[in-house]
Amino acid sequence: MRPGGPEPLNPRRRNMQANRRRDTGPERAIRSALHAAGLRYRCDYRIDLRSGHRVRPDIAFTRRRIAVFVDGCFWHSCPEHGSNPRTNSGYWGPKLAGNRERDDRNTAELRAAGWAVIRIWEHESVAEAAEKIMNVVGRSSAPGSAGNVRDRNDDT
């Protein structure tokens, strides 16, 4: 510790700490559009699965059992915009692969528990994302009957 105060943060550390887990710009924009359309939902709602895993969708329609994830292109390896960093690839390769595996596992476990899962990429327009969500919410008349939107390999 330097005299007179704590050590200044390493710029890389400060940059990593600025990455939010929730309330990202794309997530807030989509939530705003859904709210303006009259939909009400829960944010960062914790779902305890039978497997013992906990999942926190960005947006959850709890009565209809619809979970919405707004995935960042870098962190979730978007096929269009995701990139593999060249620096420290020994760390980032397994880290990003682990994120994809966790996403796939969470999606499968939520579906097995009767939840519909919608995954939105951060690069999708707010209007398209909101319309996709509203279509699924509008189709679901009973809990768990909403269906599922966008598998990992889909282009939509």
Rank of each mutant, 00 (worst) to 15 (best):
S140R: 09
E27N: 09
I66G: 03
D23E: 09
R54G: 14
G114S: 06
S125H: 07
R63N: 11
I133A: 03
A18H: 08
A116M: 09
L9H: 08
A18W: 09
R150T: 08
S125D: 07
E122M: 05
R86I: 08
S141P: 00
I59N: 04
I59L: 10
S77E: 14
A33N: 00
H81G: 10
P94S: 10
Y91T: 08
G90A: 13
S140F: 03
L96I: 13
L49F: 05
R105K: 15
R111N: 10
N99M: 01
V149C: 12
P6M: 10
T62L: 06
R31E: 07
H123A: 12
R40G: 11
W121E: 00
H53F: 11
E122Q: 13
W115V: 00
L34I: 11
G144K: 02
D103G: 11
G114F: 05
D151R: 13
R14F: 02
A60S: 13
N19C: 13
G4D: 04
R111A: 11
Y91A: 07
E124Y: 07
C73E: 08
A108P: 01
G114H: 04
G98W: 03
A129K: 00
D44P: 01
I66M: 04
I133M: 09
A36R: 14
W115S: 01
D71T: 03
P26K: 02
R28T: 05
R150M: 14
Y41M: 05
R40I: 08
A108N: 01
S32Q: 14
N106I: 01
R102L: 11
T107Y: 04
R13I: 13
D104R: 13
V117G: 01
D151G: 15
K95C: 10
R2M: 10
M16H: 06
D44V: 02
G72N: 02
W121S: 06
I120D: 00
R56E: 05
S140N: 02
V136K: 02
R100E: 07
E131D: 14
I120M: 06
G90M: 08
N84M: 13
E7R: 15
R139A: 14
H81P: 02
F69Q: 00
D103K: 07
A60Q: 03
W121V: 03
I120E: 04
Y41D: 02
S140I: 05
H81I: 09
R119E: 01
R2C: 05
A60Y: 04
R64W: 06
N10Y: 08
V55Q: 02
V70F: 03
G93P: 02
L39Q: 11
Y41R: 03
A142K: 14
H76W: 11
C43I: 13
R56G: 01
N19T: 09
I118H: 03
A113T: 04
D155C: 15
E124M: 15
I118Y: 02
G90T: 15
R54Q: 15
I30E: 00
H76C: 12
N106H: 09
V137H: 05
E131Y: 05
L9A: 14
D71A: 06
R65V: 01
G147M: 07
D151C: 13
V136H: 01
T107C: 10
A127V: 12
R2L: 13
S125C: 12
C78V: 08
I59Y: 00
S77M: 15
T156W: 15
S32A: 15
K95N: 10
E128A: 15
D103V: 03
